[in-house]
Amino acid sequence: MKNSTTRAVLFVCMGNICRSPSAEGVFRAHAAAARLDVHVDSAGTHAYHIGEPPDPRSQEFAARRGFDLSRQRARKLSTDDFAKFDLLLAMDKDNLARMKAACPAVHQHKLKLMMDYASQSDSDIVPDPYYGGPDGFDLVLDYLEDASAGLIRAMQQKLSKIPSKT
């Protein structure tokens, strides 16, 4: 990692149309508010929806909270992503296992669960809302806002430990 700080974060779920684009939008807003210079993206472990925008329900519920997902397009996780990103966060254990299976050993330390950064929720995964009702999309956003705030805190703590160059 560059100077022991995270400068590029990739959020990963299965199809890249619900959870990971929502995580990208939520975290991008939190990082901007915290004035953190970080590259943010999302991807899916499966190629079901390549090129498609996020699920309309994800966009609608995110917009209600002030997060714009409209410019995002689904893409599949690539081998290059493991080298390009400093941190790759899976939404659940199945997708984390798929990432671990595809990730070169040298980059395994970059793989974690998104909910590792949550402090207000007991869940260790972000549940997939795709086949459920509207409450699932709100719950996903609750979890992502909690975990994003925790990730911001973790990044700020790392940055505060870097000696200045003056």
Rank of each mutant, 00 (worst) to 15 (best):
Q72L: 14
D81G: 08
R28F: 10
S70H: 07
G44R: 00
A33T: 05
G25K: 03
P54D: 07
A43I: 06
Q72T: 10
V26P: 02
P21A: 10
S20D: 07
T79P: 01
A43Y: 05
I50K: 02
L88G: 02
Q59N: 11
R64I: 00
S20C: 09
P56S: 12
A43C: 06
R73E: 09
N95W: 04
H49I: 05
R65S: 00
T45D: 01
F27M: 13
G66D: 00
S22Y: 05
S22P: 13
S20Q: 03
F61W: 14
R35K: 15
F61N: 07
R73C: 07
D86T: 13
E24W: 06
R65D: 02
F27Y: 12
F67A: 02
L89H: 03
A83Y: 14
G51L: 08
I50V: 15
A74M: 06
F61R: 12
R57H: 15
K93S: 14
Q72H: 15
P54Y: 10
F85L: 00
H46M: 09
E52H: 14
S22W: 02
A83F: 14
A33N: 13
E52W: 07
R19C: 09
A34W: 06
V26Q: 04
D92G: 06
P54T: 12
K76L: 07
R19Q: 15
D94T: 15
P54Q: 10
P53K: 09
V40W: 00
A29Q: 11
Q59G: 08
D86C: 13
T79V: 13
Q59E: 14
K76T: 12
F82N: 04
S22D: 12
A43N: 01
F27N: 05
S58K: 05
P53F: 01
H39W: 10
A74C: 11
A62G: 03
A74W: 02
Q72V: 07
M91W: 06
T79I: 13
V26N: 02
A34E: 06
A62T: 03
N95K: 02
N95S: 08
V38G: 04
R35V: 08
S58Q: 11
A23T: 03
A23S: 12
N95D: 10
G44D: 01
D68H: 01
A62Q: 04
S78K: 14
A63E: 11
D80H: 07
H30M: 07
G51C: 08
D92T: 08
D55C: 13
R73V: 09
M91Y: 05
D81E: 12
G51D: 12
Y48T: 09
I50C: 13
P21S: 14
Q72P: 00
A31Q: 03
A62D: 06
L87I: 06
K76S: 12
G51E: 11
D81W: 01
R28T: 15
V38R: 01
R73P: 03
H49C: 12
Q59K: 14
S42H: 06
L87V: 03
S20H: 04
G66W: 03
D80F: 02
D80Y: 03
A63M: 10
A63G: 11
L69Q: 12
L69W: 11
A62N: 08
V40S: 01
M91R: 05
S20T: 07
L88F: 05
D94H: 14
